[in-house]
Amino acid sequence: GDLGMITAQDALVLLSWSGETAELANMLTYAKRFKVPVVSICSNRESTLARNSEIALVLPKVPEACPHGLAPTTSAMLQLAVGDALAIALLERRGFSAEDFKTFHPGGKLGAQLRLVQELAHGTGQMPLLSVGRPMSEAVIEMSAKGFGVVGITDESGKLIGVITDGDLRRHMAGDLLAQPVQEVMSRNPRVIKGDVLASAAMEFMQDHKVTVLFLVDEAGAPVGILHIHDLLRAGVA
């Protein structure tokens, strides 16, 4: 009954090792009646299936791995390989992108990996930020209040020029630490990321550079968000 959904705008890909599978007879009859093109994958060029196909992909007749030569083992793997090759060729021909994959496969781990960084990042109000010239006492308060273990430092134009981490605090621990200006303690040229990067790429970037927090910046280098590795893990990106 569901054959009625198939029209001449579609194509049937029919698989049969012998090319004489009785269950395919009705499908072939329907295809011929309504001019539905048939692509066959079988091992017999002279079979009913191959002879009635617009395109016949004929596989080599190799012995089955089954010791009795009966169970479809080697033949099933050959057909699977050809099917995968066809799928990838079609994907490339149509220009199917990772963004398209995300649209049509939004769930599960794969969907999580295809999400963009900006979808998982924390926005402006949650970013720990201070401008140059502020004292370290404010940096410690900001770091503790926002809970990311880092403070971003911006210049007069709003561009992110450095970060202060827990490690920076330990390296500069001294009696006058809290009175020092933030630019004396910060690490310059921090690692940053753009919001349109895939979450899976962000995870790889964090692992490669051994960081747990990244600021998102715009084209001008101004911070627009912050991403913690825990955000990626909660989303299922691992």
Score class of each variant (00 low, 15 high):
2 D>Q: 06
7 T>N: 11
8 A>Y: 04
9 Q>E: 05
11 A>G: 07
11 A>P: 03
11 A>T: 00
14 L>I: 01
14 L>W: 02
15 L>T: 05
17 W>D: 11
23 E>L: 12
26 N>F: 03
27 M>P: 13
27 M>W: 09
27 M>I: 15
28 L>Y: 07
29 T>W: 15
32 K>P: 00
35 K>D: 04
38 V>H: 04
38 V>Y: 02
39 V>L: 13
40 S>R: 06
40 S>C: 05
41 I>Q: 04
45 R>F: 13
47 S>D: 06
47 S>E: 08
52 N>H: 15
52 N>V: 06
53 S>W: 00
55 I>R: 09
59 L>S: 03
63 P>A: 11
64 E>L: 12
65 A>K: 14
66 C>T: 10
66 C>R: 11
68 H>L: 08
78 L>A: 10
80 L>C: 13
81 A>D: 11
84 D>Y: 11
84 D>F: 10
84 D>C: 07
86 L>V: 09
87 A>T: 01
88 I>K: 12
95 G>T: 05
95 G>K: 05
96 F>E: 14
99 E>V: 05
99 E>G: 04
101 F>P: 06
106 P>I: 13
107 G>I: 15
109 K>N: 02
110 L>K: 09
112 A>V: 03
113 Q>S: 11
114 L>F: 09
118 Q>N: 11
120 L>P: 09
123 G>P: 09
125 G>H: 08
125 G>A: 15
126 Q>G: 01
129 L>T: 06
130 L>H: 03
130 L>C: 00
131 S>M: 07
132 V>P: 03
132 V>S: 07
132 V>D: 03
136 M>Y: 00
137 S>W: 04
139 A>P: 08
146 K>L: 06
150 V>S: 01
152 G>Q: 03
153 I>C: 07
155 D>Y: 01
156 E>K: 14
156 E>P: 01
157 S>E: 08
159 K>Y: 05
160 L>E: 06
166 D>W: 05
167 G>R: 05
167 G>C: 12
169 L>N: 02
169 L>A: 04
177 L>K: 02
178 L>Q: 00
182 V>F: 02
185 V>T: 01
185 V>S: 00
186 M>Q: 04
186 M>W: 08
191 R>M: 02
192 V>R: 08
196 D>G: 08
197 V>F: 13
198 L>V: 15
199 A>L: 13
200 S>P: 02
200 S>M: 07
202 A>E: 09
202 A>R: 04
203 M>W: 12
203 M>D: 05
205 F>V: 09
206 M>V: 15
209 H>E: 00
212 T>V: 05
212 T>S: 00
216 L>H: 08
216 L>W: 01
218 D>G: 02
218 D>L: 02
220 A>H: 02
228 H>T: 02
229 I>K: 11
229 I>S: 09
230 H>Y: 09
231 D>Q: 11
232 L>F: 13
233 L>F: 13
235 A>L: 02
235 A>P: 01
236 G>T: 03
237 V>D: 10
238 A>F: 13
